[in-house]
Design a protein around this nucleic acid. Structure first.
Length: 263
DNA sequence: ATGGTTGCGAAGCAA
């Protein structure tokens, strides 16, 4: 990692209020250039933009209460920020924020969980994913510098779940969810983590219950998707399992990618 | 054993 590489990370923090000390600690250690957050679980009025500014980060937040909430932090100035799908489509509550960061468009997303297959929430998840595809397709082209990252609440394939047999009939792995994600990716995106790793058993999330983390029962549902111009510059990727350890850990860990691009 | 844990908000609900 030379001085010209940019470190971009995405992290579902499961309440920024509860995780602020950990987030600041991780940022001081990893020094990401760009950090996308999900599940801040706070309204814009509570978002600590001043604290991040003091730490050297510009920021944009989109949240309206105790659930969901997404943000982008950046050492470079953010501009042309936008929230939601912007076309009147129901975004199911503060799940998308976007901004220009240098010459690259950054989108931070928190895809709905879906709760149970065939539920109204599951159908809403599929609809939200279709809206995301439409949002991207109407505003961007694959030749642009574009990153869409966040908690997709979908394990792209069976390598990304600890036991596929245990997930039969459950959300996050169902064919319609995976097809919706594939439909988005096939528009012209690359899964940056998979550029560097092909093996199974590498996860970004572990259930709090049942000692799942220590039993290696997790899923890879937090993704950094990028168009070809950005993906070609992706020299390395990591999911920081250390962030799942210690006191009051979040259930997700940061997914980080190094991009050899000019600042 | 429809369990288990965490956060929100102040009791269940969402994940």
């Amino acid at each position: 990692m030379d001085d010209s590489s940019v470190l971009l990370a995405t992290w579902n923090v499961n309440s920024l209020r509860a995780r602020m000390d950990r987030v600041m600690e991780w940022m001081a250690c990893a020094k990401p250039d760009i950090l996308c957050l999900q599940e801040t679980k706070m309204p814009d009025s509570a978002f600590p933009a001043d604290v991040f500014r003091d730490a050297g980060y510009d920021s944009i937040h989109h949240g309206d209460g105790g659930w969901n909430g997404v943000a982008i932090l950046s050492k470079m100035a953010l501009s042309d920020a936008d929230t939601g799908f912007g076309d009147g489509a129901d975004e199911l509550g503060c799940r998308l924020v976007s901004a220009m960061c240098g010459n690259t468009r950054i989108v931070s997303v928190y895809v709905p969980n879906g709760r149970e297959v065939a539920s109204e929430y599951y159908n809403g998840k599929l609809e939200w994913l279709a809206n995301l595809k439409r949002y991207i397709n109407t505003r961007h082209v694959p030749e642009e510098r574009l990153v869409i990252c966040g908690d997709f609440n979908i394990a792209p394939d069976d390598r990304d779940v600890w036991d596929p047999k245990a997930f039969v009939g459950l959300t996050h792995v169902s064919a319609p969810e995976r097809e919706a994600l594939h439909d988005l990716i096939s528009w012209g995106l690359y899964d940056c983590f998979r550029i560097h790793y092909s093996q199974s058993g590498l996860y970004s999330w572990w259930d709090y219950r049942g000692g799942a983390f220590h039993q290696h029962r997790g899923m890879r549902i937090d993704l950094v998707l990028a168009t070809r111009p950005v993906a070609e510059e992706c020299s390395f990727a990591l999911m920081d399992r250390t962030a799942r350890k210690g006191k009051q850990p979040p259930d997700h860990v940061p997914v980080a990618v190094w991009l050899d691009m000019q600042r």
